[in-house]
Amino acid sequence: MANKIDDELKKIVSTITEIPLDTLKPDADFFDDLKIDSMKAIEIVAAFEKKYKIVIPEEEIPKMRSLSKIIAFAKDKIK
């Protein structure tokens, strides 16, 4: 299950950011390293919520600055 979530989230982020799967580093900062704008960031959050039918509180969104942080949040919520 854990690896499945990793792969699914990586695909979501890769599709939205247009960063190839093989170059998407889990700890790369969305804003500083990957230069993702706020529109893409909210698109990632919306896709994540739709996929797993969970709601990410607005105050949590700024903390999700990398794929690894999204995965950690997902694993905490989807048990």
């Binding site: 706020s38 529109m39 909210i42 698109e43 919306a46 919520e49 739709k50 607005e58 969104i61």
Partner: peptide
Amino acid sequence: GLKMVNNAGV
């Protein structure tokens, strides 16, 4: 609406 936050909407 899929997501509505203070600075954006989906």
